[in-house]
């Protein structure tokens, strides 16, 4: 799971536009990752097994990891490294998963900060297991995963054998809000810190830029709203 700035964050940068400005920013579990966590809990509650939440990041994300434990994960692992790029993150998770054994890996379809959408696919390929991207429904029965995934202009129902990886899309399930009992239990659940393995990041974020400011809006009289169409046709030339 990724830890990302809350969706209401007004994004700004510091150090000559080379760093994301963290001041005053609230961090949350990436919303798609929260869906995958919840779905993992639902699957294990029905079928047995346990859920491990894995995060690649520094100690400042431990509050969010505790939240994952409060939601219901049995244990958590933090791989102690700055998440450099998708390849780097996937390689850390793949190395850990390979050592531990697993049946199913669920990720979010992308993080809402860097929008790579790559970690799940890269780690599945590294592990040599099937990958089902952008799923809105996933069930496991007798070692077979059946899922519905978004494709361009429609949806596809697929199946694959365990072990398998998939990424969560909106509609997969409803996120769970941790209750008091969960929050208390999370304090004593294991949170293991593991040092990173390889370092094969092949990209660096050099600098950032905000989109250019828009000019003033051109208002059209609502009584003469139809004029919009001729403006879009003749002036903006988009229709």
């Amino acid at each position: 799971m990724s830890v990302v700035p809350d969706t209401t964050t007004k994004v700004t940068f510091t150090d000559n536009n080379t760093k994301f400005n963290q001041s005053g920013v609230q961090y949350i579990i990436n919303p798609y990752d929260e869906l995958s966590l919840t779905r993992a809990l639902e699957i294990t509650e029905a079928q047995g097994g346990s859920v491990t939440a894995i995060h690649v990041g520094l100690a400042d994300s431990e509050a969010s990891i505790r939240k994952a434990l409060a939601i219901g994960a049995q244990e958590a692992v933090r791989i102690n490294a700055e998440p450099k790029d998708a390849y780097f993150v996937a390689e850390q998770i793949a190395a850990y998963a390979q050592g531990q054994g697993f049946d199913l890996i669920l990720t979010g379809r992308e993080s809402i900060d860097y929008n790579g959408g790559l970690v799940g696919g890269i780690l599945a390929e590294m592990l040599g297991i099937p990958y089902i991207n952008v799923v809105t429904k996933i069930d496991v029965n007798n070692g077979v995963v059946e899922a519905i995934r978004d494709i361009d202009g429609g949806r596809e129902t697929v199946k694959a054998a365990l072990p398998c990886a998939a990424s969560a899309q909106k509609d997969l399930t409803e996120p769970r809000i941790p209750n008091m009992r969960g929050i208390m239990a999370a304090r004593t659940k294991p949170l293991q810190v593991v040092e990173p393995s390889a370092n094969n990041a092949g990209s660096t974020y050099a600098q950032y830029e905000l989109p250019p400011a828009k000019g003033a809006v051109k208002l059209i009289d609502p009584n003469n709203a139809g004029e919009l169409m001729s403006i879009l046709h003749n002036e903006a030339k988009v229709i």
Partner: peptide
């Protein structure tokens, strides 16, 4: 970077040990 592309890029990346910029 459409839905198909989002599933294809990670595979290419691993096979070629390539970094990916998406979007």
């Amino acid at each position: 970077n459409n839905y198909t592309g989002k599933s294809v890029s990670p595979v290419v990346a691993v096979k070629l040990k390539a970094s990916v910029a998406s979007g």
